[in-house]
């Protein structure tokens, strides 16, 4: 079942076609990576999928609603209710603690609930770091807080922009483990990256070049990877809590 569908989407800035008649289709529960060099239109696509921009032409169906035609106010509502965002720069409010940062997201969505926020931090293995300020957390820990923040409102779609771009390998693996777990739970994931390893963790990779979809690569080893991951999780059973 399709969650997201881009039909002939173009975004034109003056003479530049950032996106040129792109057709993309993402199913519910799918884990998709979007790759491409700088200037290939990744960011533009991300903005459009994240309800932060509208295409010049084309339709963008998110859960059956054409978000290309909605008002900014409506886009904000859709973004808040359906999308969890994870950024390369983490973007935490630097004067709020980890748990408060998670609660900011709850605040705009519905009602701040500290218990729930603490549980979300527990899922990313940061329960005991809940009352630390961002400056007291490592990059990996900050990104895990951001994953918890993205999860807190149970979004239909998690949209991650270079989530491991600022992380070392160990932390990259932790984040990928979290993604694998989210996938296992049925969350739809779209990860924009230029890192082949991160892309390889996904089920399918869409490669953008010059604003067009150059090719799509299906990860044939994905089911094996997931099995391996579940087995490893059982033996390690540490950072990532079982569902």
């Amino acid at each position: 079942m399709s969650l997201l569908e881009l039909k002939n989407v173009s975004k034109i800035y003056g003479d530049l076609k950032a996106l040129d008649s792109v057709n993309v289709h993402v199913d519910k529960g799918e884990w998709v990576a979007i790759m491409g060099p700088s200037g290939s239109g990744k960011s533009t696509m991300m903005n459009i999928i994240g309800c932060m921009d509208r295409p010049t032409y084309g339709e963008v169906l998110l859960d059956g609603v054409d978000i290309a035609k909605e008002s900014s106010k409506k886009l904000t509502d859709i973004r808040r209710d359906k999308i969890g965002l994870i950024f390369q720069q983490f973007h935490m409010v630097n004067y709020l603690t980890a748990v408060e940062n998670v609660m900011v997201s709850q605040y705009y969505h519905s009602m701040p609930d500290e218990q729930e926020a603490l549980e979300a931090l527990g899922r990313v293995g940061l329960r005991e770091r809940a009352h630390h300020l961002p400056s007291q957390l490592s990059g990996g820990e900050q990104q895990r807080v951001c994953v918890a923040r993205a999860l807190i409102n149970h979004p239909e779609l998690i949209l991650a922009d270079e989530p491991t771009g600022n992380l070392d390998e160990a932390n990259e693996n932790i984040v990928l483990d979290l993604f694998a777990q989210l996938h296992a739970e049925g969350t739809t994931l779209i990860v924009v990256t230029h890192d082949p390893e991160v892309a390889d963790a996904a089920q399918r990779t869409i490669v953008l070049e010059h604003g067009k979809v150059a090719r799509e690569v299906i990860n044939e080893h994905f089911d094996e990877q997931q099995k391996e991951w579940l087995a490893r999780l059982k033996t390690e059973n540490k950072r990532v809590m079982p569902v």
């Binding site: 904000t76 965002l85 923040r149």
Partner: peptide
């Protein structure tokens, strides 16, 4: 502005 952008990305309406 980054924080404000973040808040908006997280779903803060213009009103809030």
């Amino acid at each position: 502005r980054r924080e404000i952008g973040l808040r908006k990305a997280l779903g803060a309406s213009d009103g809030s």
